[in-house]
Computed example of a mutant assay.
Amino acid sequence: MIVEQFFEDYEVGFERKTFGRTITESDIVIHAGQTGDHFPHHMDAEWCKTQDFGQRIAHGTLVFSVGIGMTASTINPRAMSYGYDRLRFIRPVFIADTINVTARIAEKRDHPRRRTHGIVVEGIEMVNQRKEAVLVCEHLYLVERRTPVDAG
């Protein structure tokens, strides 16, 4: 879906939620192959039984990628991703855990150099099926302004 929004159209506090997505063993194996991260925490079920969590853990980068992908439901030709800040892996995600994502507009601010754009900060929280936070971050968007700010 295409939704055209300028910087001025974003409202702090606006929130959207995703459907759930269950993390599978295949997700972990494919991610390990794509990234080269074959650490035993992700790949060795027997070794993991001897560790605190007792089972394999999904890669944090896998959870981040899947969760952010879940929020990508619209295309705004007036905005683009500007990056991510304050990324934290709060709890491990295991095989068969289901994650849901809440994305909330947390802040709008001027861009330090571009008068024609502003920065919209979307707070991201990913939770498991027990509603426990597993990952949080800030997604920054560079968004075109309808009216450029004064250079003054």
Rank of each mutant, 00 (worst) to 15 (best):
14 F>K: 13
14 F>C: 05
33 G>Q: 11
98 T>L: 12
80 M>G: 14
108 K>L: 04
26 S>T: 11
82 Y>T: 07
34 Q>D: 14
150 D>H: 07
46 E>V: 15
124 I>L: 14
18 T>L: 07
113 R>D: 05
134 V>E: 12
144 E>R: 08
140 L>I: 06
83 G>L: 02
48 C>Q: 07
132 E>Q: 12
101 V>I: 15
30 I>Q: 13
110 D>T: 03
68 I>D: 10
87 L>A: 13
81 S>D: 08
147 T>I: 15
7 F>R: 01
18 T>N: 07
15 E>Q: 12
33 G>T: 08
26 S>P: 00
128 N>R: 04
18 T>F: 06
83 G>V: 10
82 Y>F: 15
89 F>W: 15
78 R>G: 01
115 R>E: 08
32 A>F: 07
21 R>A: 02
84 Y>H: 15
40 P>Q: 11
94 F>T: 04
42 H>M: 01
90 I>G: 00
19 F>Y: 06
56 R>D: 03
21 R>Y: 12
83 G>M: 10
25 E>V: 01
121 V>C: 08
121 V>I: 14
71 T>H: 09
146 R>W: 02
91 R>Q: 14
99 I>S: 00
88 R>F: 10
119 I>T: 05
37 D>I: 04
26 S>F: 00
78 R>K: 15
39 F>D: 10
77 P>T: 06
66 V>N: 03
7 F>Q: 00
68 I>F: 09
57 I>E: 03
85 D>V: 13
8 E>M: 10
39 F>Y: 13
120 V>N: 05
26 S>R: 10
53 F>H: 12
142 L>Y: 05
29 V>I: 15
69 G>C: 13
49 K>P: 03
80 M>F: 14
48 C>S: 11
133 A>G: 06
136 V>G: 08
84 Y>W: 15
102 T>N: 02
23 I>P: 00
120 V>H: 00
12 V>R: 06
94 F>G: 09
100 N>L: 07
68 I>T: 11
112 P>F: 14
1 M>P: 07
122 E>Q: 11
4 E>R: 11
95 I>E: 09
2 I>Q: 14
79 A>H: 10
142 L>P: 00
97 D>H: 01
115 R>G: 09
130 R>W: 04
139 H>V: 01
47 W>V: 01
112 P>C: 14
111 H>Y: 09
76 N>V: 04
28 I>V: 04
131 K>Y: 07
9 D>Q: 08
77 P>A: 05
73 S>F: 03
10 Y>N: 04
119 I>S: 04
85 D>W: 01
129 Q>Y: 08
33 G>R: 11
147 T>F: 11
38 H>N: 11
78 R>Q: 15
59 H>W: 02
39 F>H: 12
38 H>G: 03
107 E>L: 02
144 E>A: 08
137 C>Y: 03
118 G>R: 09
59 H>P: 06
108 K>T: 06
8 E>R: 01
78 R>V: 06
51 Q>C: 10
5 Q>M: 14
27 D>A: 01
72 A>S: 14
82 Y>S: 13
119 I>E: 05
3 V>W: 05
20 G>S: 03
